[in-house]
């Protein structure tokens, strides 16, 4: 256990080196949030409600997406597939630790740094929106949402890990992260609230695991979800988590048998 603690500390200090980059990413997110706010402000100039949303609820949705994303976002598929492809993973295979555990620790280190920079900024943005647009943000459900984020984070991690292991068979590894982003934007609720989609499309959205990474925790944080729905969705989330955990293990054991690396 001690070796993992040492590794975690080293990942944390490495991620702190890039706090300038993290701060710039925060600005990028804030520009994106402003863009969505402008659009919805215009929508609500001529409409009282859209679907089940009034202006306050829609703004809180777009505000909560990056906050929840601060907890549930994972970027394993942006670097692990390349490591597998280039053979750089060989060095990790020789060391006495699990690949999935060190990736989890690495992501956790990045996350802590991200959250230290992000959370105060979003807290400020929340206060700004509350006063400027005269909207009421309910923070009472946030602790419950943060508890669910633990499982959403693990689901995203094991999904991303399974995706990354495809690099044992596929050449164009750079596209993995992008394809996942596209899926999260549409089916995860990153681009729009999924409950604005017409009923006939919703079945497809409900069948896929992506909504449990962003949309579900955001809806829990917003409040108003019936208890039975909350529990049943959590059960589905946990089922997906177990599925991707097993899938990842299977892909790893199959892939590592196929893997070969050489050097001079």
């Amino acid at each position: 256990m001690k070796k993992y603690w040492v590794l975690f500390k080293s990942y944390l200090s490495a991620s702190l080196e890039y706090r300038g980059a993290l701060f710039t990413w925060l600005l990028v997110e804030l520009v994106s949030l402003s863009s969505a706010t402008f659009l919805w402000l215009a929508v609500f100039r001529t409409n009282q409600t859209v679907g089940d949303y009034d202006f306050g609820r829609i703004v809180s949705y777009y505000l909560l997406v990056p906050v929840i994303g601060g907890f549930t976002s994972i970027f394993v598929s942006e670097h692990l597939p390349r490591k597998i492809k280039d053979g750089a993973i060989s060095i990790d295979l020789l060391k006495p630790y699990s690949i999935s555990a060190i990736n989890l620790l690495n992501q956790f280190g990045i996350k802590l740094t991200q959250l230290t920079i992000k959370l105060p900024a979003y807290l400020f943005a929340g206060i700004f929106f509350t006063h400027f647009f005269n909207i009421h943000l309910q923070l009472i459900y946030l602790p419950l949402a943060l508890f669910i984020c633990i499982f959403s984070y693990l689901l995203h991690f094991y999904l991303d890990l399974a995706l990354s292991y495809l690099a044992f068979w596929v050449d164009d590894t750079w596209s993995f992260g992008l394809i996942k982003t596209v899926a999260l934007m549409v089916f995860g609720g990153l681009s729009f609230p999924l409950d604005l989609v017409p009923q006939n499309f919703r079945l497809l959205f409900d069948l896929l695991p992506f909504k449990y990474i962003y949309f579900y925790p955001v809806k829990v944080a917003q409040g108003g979800m019936p208890a039975n729905q909350l529990v049943s969705q959590l059960v589905v989330l946990l089922t997906w988590l177990v599925f991707f955990f097993i899938l990842g293990k299977l892909l790893w054991f199959k892939g590592i048998r196929k893997y070969g690396a050489y050097g001079n």
Binding site: A21, V31, S35
Partner: peptide, 20 residues
């Protein structure tokens, strides 16, 4: 800002705001 590598992405984001 030496470590602010995503600065060009910030500029890029404006192109996406322009779709409004």
């Amino acid at each position: 800002f030496i470590n602010a590598t995503p600065l060009p992405m910030l500029a890029q984001q404006l192109l996406f705001v322009a779709r409004n």
